[in-house]
Design a protein around this nucleic acid. Structure first.
Length: 462
RNA sequence: UCCUCAGUAGCUCAGCUGGUUAGAGCGGCGGACUGUUAAUCCGUAGGUCGCAGGUUCGAUCCCUGCCUGGGGAGCCA
């Protein structure tokens, strides 16, 4: 007999039919000779209620069906006599796949702290909260591909192992097969990477952007979507050593086209979640963050505020606030400044553009003023920078000048610079941190709770 | 990496201004209950008070170091 998923049973499945369900027990309650089991199979946050009359089953079997146990139930779908659910299954056969000894199984019927669940990350999938979060994460990953595919963008697989560490996005993780007990050295006594697997120093990527640009300058519009790695010793609720990033790169887009795409993209994903993850969002809204759904809907209805960096500095100076970090043209905006702009002054997402070139990356296009670059940061309430992007410098000489000004190793970047020698064209792109965005979408406050297996300093347990 | 708070039962926490037998709720276990909904009611077991030193007649409590976790900052996405 074919298994039916709980989600299907709860959405208009014909009552009276014989069905087979398989899943994990969430709770069991018994009244004299009747046992009620709430069964979840991951297909939805909702459980199906199993009604088992004691006389039909062995006492030991019913005793072994505890929170966490995996079972299969064959029975008839019936209208429920209880008030909390429309239908239930009157059990005729129950098969126990795997017991979960209640004396030691760590998950209880009652709620647990997110901190505790992080310590048992191998089991937290079985909770309502993490079921909801990872269903939403899946839906968003799918929506990202759908959005770009529908717009004619190509999914470009940029390398995980990279030979350049010039991007400057952060400390990198080294990739090597050298024997640590017998490291080859050259005449100067330095490590001889020519003996390493790739014949040169290699690292895990911090961004697929530079490679993405190569694709965009031929395929037109591409996006990357994959893991990226930062070896920064960042211990905050917003940083991971391994996180997933989406980086679209578009030929013939200027900074305004870039902003339009970023805003449309974020709204599309938000709308997709509201339309496709309603049950899960409502659960998170009720349990963690009563304003969650309202906030998501607010994002959809209102345009993002767009201001220049120079304008932002003026607003911050005029605020009359005392800042821990000084507000001064040329200095980067600090968390307190961004929060003021987003959460107090505009009370909506803000895109800040045209930053001083000194505080932005080498590849950003220089403005005519010679002082600022066509950069854009999208700031969201609660999480700060969710997107960073720019129009790229397509002028060969200007790009080379900037690389030399910054004393970067132009040899390592020869292939990137080369694209500005042949058929260079205006182009733009941005990077979205998936987990940062999921913090916003789910109302979670710690990034470790929106990725199945968080990688942070001194923690790679699961 | 810096600042700050915390670590007591399986979980969430209270308590001890240094003193003999360490508390609650939930969860677990046993029982009651003919439709429960985080069921309810009665009973019951369960603790090297994060780890290592130090001070002291005596430390879970005070001091030092370390570990782990939370929050904030920096770096960033």
């Amino acid at each position: 007999m074919k298994r039916t998923k709980v989600k299907e049973l709860l959405t208009g499945f014909p009552v009276g039919e014989e069905v087979l369900v398989k899943g994990w027990v969430r709770t069991k309650r018994s009244i004299k000779e009747i046992v009620f089991i709430a069964l979840n199979d991951g297909s939805t946050i909702k459980n199906i209620q199993i009604v088992a009359e004691g006389v039909k089953f062995g006492e030991q079997l019913l005793k072994d069906i505890n929170t966490g146990a995996a079972i299969a139930v064959k029975g008839k779908l019936a209208e429920s006599k209880g008030k909390e659910q429309p239908v239930e299954i009157i059990a005729e056969e129950i098969e126990l796949y795997g017991k979960a000894d209640p004396e030691i199984y760590p998950l209880q019927k009652k709620g647990h702290s997110l901190e505790f669940l992080r310590e048992i990350a191998h089991l937290r999938f079985r909770t309502n909260t993490f079921g909801a979060i990872f269903r939403i994460r899946h839906a968003i990953a799918f929506a990202i591909h759908k959005y770009f595919n529908d717009k004619g963008f190509y999914y470009l697989h940029t390398p995980i192992i990279t030979g350049s560490d010039c991007e400057g996005a952060g400390e990198m993780f080294r990739v090597t097969t050298l024997d640590f007990d017998n490291i080859p050295r050259n005449q100067e006594g330095k490590v001889d990477f020519s003996k390493d697997f790739f014949g040169k120093e290699t690292n895990l990527t911090v961004s697929g952007q530079l490679e993405g640009e190569l694709g965009a300058l031929a395929l037109g519009e591409i996006y990357t979507f994959g893991p990226t790695f930062r070896a920064e010793n960042s211990n905050t609720p917003r940083h991971l050593a391994e996180f997933w990033m989406i980086e679209p790169e578009m030929a013939f887009y200027d900074i305004n086209d870039n902003m339009d795409l970023a805003e449309d993209f974020l709204k599309y994903l938000t709308r997709y979640a509201l339309e496709n993850c309603r049950d899960d969002l409502e659960f998170l809204n009720n349990m963690f963050d009563k304003g969650l759904i309202e906030r998501l809907e607010f994002i959809l209805k209102n345009p993002f505020e767009r201001i220049t960096y120079t304008n932002a500095i003026e607003i911050l100076k005029a605020s009359g606030r005392k800042w821990e970090f000084p507000v001064e043209w040329g200095r980067d905006l600090q968390a307190e400044h961004e929060r003021y702009l987003v959460e107090e002054y505009f009370k909506r997402p803000v895109i800040i553009t045209d930053y001083p070139k000194e505080i932005k990356a080498f590849y950003m296009k220089l403005n005519d003023d010679g002082k600022t670059v066509k950069a854009m940061d999208v700031l969201f309430p609660g999480i700060g920078e969710v997107i960073g992007g720019s129009q790229r410098e397509e002028d060969y000489n200007k790009l080379l000048n900037r690389i030399r000004e910054l004393n970067m190793n132009e040899k390592d970047l020869w292939w990137y610079i080369d694209t500005r020698r042949f058929g260079s064209a205006p182009h733009s792109g941005f990077g979205l941190g998936l987990e940062r965005f999921l913090i916003f979408l789910t109302g979670m406050t710690n990034i470790r709770d929106v990725i199945p297996f968080p990688r942070t300093p001194r923690n790679a347990e699961f």
